[in-house]
Amino acid sequence: MKLRKSTITIFAIVCGLLMLAPIYFLVVGAFKTPDSVFDLSLRISDFTFDNIKQVFAETNIVRAIFNSLIVSVTVTVVAMLIHAMAGYALARLNFPGKTFTFGWIISTLMVPFSVIMIPLYMVVQNLGMANSYLGLIVPMIFNAYGIFLFRQFYLEFPKELEEAAYVEGLSIAGTFFRLVLPLSKPIIVPLTIGFFTANWNNYLWPMIINQKEELNVVQVALANIVGGGYETEWSVMLAAALISAIPTFILFFIVQRHLVEGVKTTGIK
C-alpha cells in the first residue's frame, strides 16, 4: 500500500512536469537572446534581461497592468456576489418560472461572442460606456457560467445548515449572506481564478470598445509587441507573454491554499 502511494505520487508529479514543459520554454525563451531562442540548450552567455527591458520601454505596461487589475478584480468581485445569489435562488428557492429562468440563463451560454460583438458594441455605446472603465467592466460581468456552477454547488450543499438557521429566526437573505456565502469558498475560489484569468486575458472586447490609450488593458498594450508588426522578435514576444501572465500566477499562489477545501459539515451529517 505504501509503495503504491509513492508510485502514484511520482506519476502525478511527472505528469505535472509534462504540463509545465511548455511554460518552461516560455520562461527560458523570455530571458534568451533573440538568436538563441530556438536553441534548447541552456548557456549562461545567452542569458539577458533585454527582452524584459524592451517590453517596459515600448509599452506603458505599468498603467496597463493597473487598468487590467481594476477591470479584472471588479468584474470578479461583482460577478461572484451576484452569481452566487442567482445560483442560490435557482438551487434552493421555489418561485414561479424557475425552470424557465434557469433554461433561459443557460441558453445565453451558447452564444459565440464574435456573433454578438457588433450589437454589444451598439448597446454599450448607447449607454455611454464606451471609452471608459464601465464599458470594459459591466458587459463582462454577466455570464451564465458562474450562475450555473454556483447552482450546481448549492444543489449539493447540506440542507441541515440552513434549516438550523431558519429555526433561529434568520430570514432567507440573512441565511444566505451570513451562513451560506461564507461557506461557499470551495466554489468561490476556483471561480475567482476562472473569472480573473478570463478577464485578465480578454483582448477582443477591450480592443474594440476602448480607443483611449490611457485605458488600454495589458493584452491590448502587448498586442503592440506581439501583434503582427514588421519586427517581432520571438524572445521579446515571450517576455511580453511572461510579464502578462505573472499577476495570474501570483493569484494562483495566493489562493492555492484555499483551493479544494470541502465544506466543513462536521457534526451535521
Binding site: 502525478a12 508529479i13 512536469l17 504540463m19 511554460i23 486575458n201 506581439v226 502578462s244 495570474t248 494562483f252
Partner: peptide, 23 residues
Amino acid sequence: YQSIARTMFLLPFAITSVISAVI
C-alpha cells in the same frame, strides 16, 4: 504533494490563448 501537483496542472490556465498558441 497534492498542492504542488495541483499548481502544476493549473498553471497553463494562466496563459492567454494567444500566447499558449504561440508557445
